[in-house]
């Protein structure tokens, strides 16, 4: 049997990949298997565990298959400076080491999150009162700006002026650093 990846060497590594419950047989040569590295979980038949889900996601990323733009070079180590976790480790255990990992592995995390959360990658929802910092304020301004636009479109200039003043007040607050 010939390696699926390079189509040259003979395949010596055989395993089953499970993506969303769908089994897929993979046959690779030693070298290609190694290049795919830790991101492949071997023959885990238990189905939808987060680990093989992640592994599956990562392997399945079309960017990797075609352009290699997101692929990890075998000698390249992406590591979180805060906790020391490597991208390979993360993909293996399926858990982040710390909050900074989300930034450290940002490029790889976005497609994973999209797959896990129905295409979503951005938070919509609760914002903590304190830790949220100026987010509340900025969200408020965004909403007011939309209101302003629709008021202008409806030529309700008097109301629009009020909203504009409100926006200015909030923006001033924002410049002064929240609160």
């Amino acid at each position: 049997m010939i390696c699926q990846e390079c189509q040259k060497r003979s395949a010596t590594v055989h395993f089953t990949k499970i993506i969303n419950g769908e089994k897929m047989e993979v046959h690779l040569c030693e070298q290609c298997a190694h290049e795919k590295g830790n991101i492949i979980m071997f023959n885990n038949s238990s189905g939808l565990s987060i680990n093989n889900l992640l592994a599956g996601l990562f392997n399945f990323n079309p960017n990797i298959e075609h352009t290699h733009s997101n692929a990890i070079h075998p000698n390249e180590i992406i590591q979180c400076d805060t906790c020391g976790m490597t991208l390979q480790q993360f993909l293996k255990i399926g858990r982040f080491g710390c909050a900074s990992c989300y930034d450290a592995f940002q490029d790889q995390v976005t497609p994973i999150l999209k797959r896990l959360h129905g295409g979503n990658w951005k938070h919509i929802g609760k914002i903590p009162e304190r830790s949220g910092g100026t987010i509340h304020l900025r969200k408020k301004i965004d909403i007011l700006k939309e209101t302003l636009q629709s008021l202008v479109a409806k030529e309700e200039f008097e109301k629009a002026a009020e909203v504009r003043d409100e926006i200015r007040a909030y923006e001033k607050q924002l410049q002064e650093g929240g609160e």
Partner: peptide
């Protein structure tokens, strides 16, 4: 308590299946 929160990702969790809300 100071929570780990990011504007883009929301509440940051150990497992990516819980992040956001």
């Amino acid at each position: 308590l100071d929570y780990a929160f990011s504007e883009v990702r929301g509440y940051l969790t150990s497992c990516p299946t819980n992040v956001g809300t």
